[in-house]
Design a protein around this nucleic acid. Structure first.
Lengths: 181, 181
DNA sequence: CTCAAATTTGATTGTACACTCTAATTTGAG
DNA sequence: CTCAAATTAGAGTGTACAATCAAATTTGAG
């Protein structure tokens, strides 16, 4: 069972090259051959470490999802502003990951069932956090209205993130801060 | 040169089956084989009528783009509400086309250059129309602010359209009407 | 140093894809 | 009815893909 250093390093290189490729050429361009070439590894070595190409991609999706949300420890005290600012810093400081998320959300979710569920579940969680933050700020609001607000705000954010993913010039932060809430 | 009826009918069947496939299984699942099978046509017949698979897809993109916008004849008098309502009725009455647009916007734009330009150009045109409508309603607004508003509103709409494309249950119209402007 | 286990290699398989080509068939204008 | 042009059929090409496998090599604990 005991793993060797060589194998661990190889695994890291494979994950790194997959991440780079996903952000540079999308899911479509991230082929097994491309991953292996960039990692300086033969195909056989890849399959010694991973069950399938999908398993690496799925790991990266998890990474991206984890990076979207701010410190879960603060759950229960965060404001809508906190969540919005966290999203801004995610997209601007981590454009690679943001791109991966947007790309996989669409290219993956519509066809591959596994990714679809993962993205859907993540959206619901985010919706709840935004709604709770909203209700913390305005306790008189009923749940339905708060959920409505959260849904629209989230849609604006993802719409703008989508735009940022397609157009490098797009000033994401400024536009997000202009979103009415 | 004179075309025969048989060829014209075949062409129609191919376009129809491509449209159906795009909305059902996305760009990825819309293979030449699938198109031909559904159209009840052999591969050779396809290439007698079209240069490539891409050319049919591109025609469908044009169709989708044309369907997104309301009657261009009214250009110059339409209000922001008109544009928003037109978008709502496009997405709700024509979910197939909406799906095609969203899917192609992302899956296509990031990799295939041709589609990328087309989608980008369309977005800019839409942005201008929303901005002009906004300025017509509030003549005191400076161009930058109006553009800003239009950009955010459009992002909200596309974010919600994206959501609707992923989740059949999603009540698009209600959410769009809840978007602050 | 030894040796079993971990890792690497590279040739190989099988499948799906867009697209081509030639010959047979069908169409419809004159 | 004729026949050139349009259409269709369907086998075939080439390429890219994910994944497999047995054999060679490397690792590192004892």
């Amino acid at each position: 069972m005991a793993r060797y250093q060589a194998g661990i390093r190889t695994e890291g290189r494979i994950v790194d090259s997959t991440r780079e490729l996903l952000s540079e050429v999308g899911l479509e361009g991230t082929t097994l051959k491309a991953i292996c070439e960039r990692a300086g590894v033969r195909v056989g070595s890849f399959y010694n470490l991973f069950d399938s190409k999908e398993s690496v991609v799925l790991r990266l999706v998890g990474e991206a999802i984890a990076a979207v949300d701010p410190d879960p420890a603060h759950l229960g005290t965060e404001t809508v502003e906190d969540l919005v600012e966290a999203y801004i810093s995610f997209v601007t400081k981590n454009p690679t990951m943001a791109r991966i998320y947007v790309q996989i959300a669409v290219t993956g979710a519509l066809t591959h069932g596994e990714l679809h569920h993962r993205i859907q579940r993540h959206h619901e969680q985010r919706l709840e956090r935004f709604r709770d933050a909203k209700m913390r700020a305005e306790p008189d609001l009923d749940v339905a209205t708060a959920t409505e607000c959260a849904e629209v705000l989230l849609a604006s954010l993802s719409g703008l993130a989508f735009r940022a993913a397609l157009d490098e010039e797009f000033d994401f932060a400024t536009h997000v801060r202009a979103v009415p809430r």
